[in-house]
């Protein structure tokens, strides 16, 4: 148990999950034409994954840079922000992540239980359009990561390797006037706790 770096296990699992979640959010919220998405099966549920190489590489590079922070339990939130043409957020999908201190682990059930939990989150994302208003045309997206100042050093090396630099987010991309808060899913497992909710702007168009 000591040999297994649980931070790395959690980071692998979460980054794989976040990749699926980001693709699905972009599909469900129609940020891109549905024609670039392909039906796939992840966590035993049908999902939609983009097959556009440039977009896929962007998402992979983003998560590759976030991974070192998750490994060290320094990523407090990962936020998928959908913005209108003026780059003002209309929706923020907030993944709050925390890794509890390891108390008791039974590896047999650990991963299968975690898979069930992540499956439930994916299912909630796939039907979230039922509780969200339509977005205006011409939306795009970005990904924010909330961390501690000292932790940003942990991202520096991977940014250079991937040639994918990060900057401090603009206030306009972070703040949202009178957001409506829509909880989607909370999950608790032995090695990670996660809460997913959406902040939706009151007047989108």
């Amino acid at each position: 148990r000591q040999d297994l770096n649980f931070g790395q296990v959690v980071a692998d699992i979460l980054c794989e999950f976040l990749e699926v979640a980001i693709h699905l959010i972009l599909y469900v919220r129609e940020v891109y034409p549905s024609g670039i998405f392909q039906k796939r099966k992840k966590y035993n549920v049908p999902v939609q994954m983009s097959c556009h190489p440039e977009l896929n590489q962007y998402i992979q590079d983003t998560l590759h840079c976030v991974k070192p922070l998750i490994e060290k339990n320094e990523a407090e939130k990962v936020v998928v922000v959908i913005m209108d043409k003026e780059h003002h957020p209309v929706e923020r999908f907030v993944f709050e992540i925390s890794q509890p201190p390891l108390l008791s682990i039974s590896s047999e059930t650990l991963l299968s239980h975690l898979e069930q939990l992540l499956r439930a989150v994916i299912l909630k994302i796939s039907v979230c359009d039922a509780v969200l208003d339509n977005n205006p045309p011409g939306c795009t997206f970005t990904v924010l990561v909330y961390t501690r100042e000292a932790a940003t050093r942990n991202m520096e090396k991977v940014q250079v390797i991937k040639d994918f630099p990060w900057i401090v987010a603009d206030e306009q991309e972070v703040l949202m006037q009178e957001p409506r808060l829509i909880p989607l899913k909370t999950m608790t497992s032995d090695i990670v706790k996660m809460q997913l909710y959406v902040e939706e702007r009151a007047h989108k168009s």
């Binding site: 940020v31 891109y32 970005t142 501690r148 940003t152 630099p165 401090v168």
Partner: peptide
């Protein structure tokens, strides 16, 4: 910054809808 958190984002933006549409034929 919110509550001491350091909020970071990628410098580069993702491809937008038009850029995706323009490359569909190539793909």
């Amino acid at each position: 910054k919110s509550g001491g958190a350091h909020i970071l984002k990628p410098l580069m933006s993702p491809p937008n809808r038009e850029e995706i549409l323009n490359t569909l034929l190539d793909l």
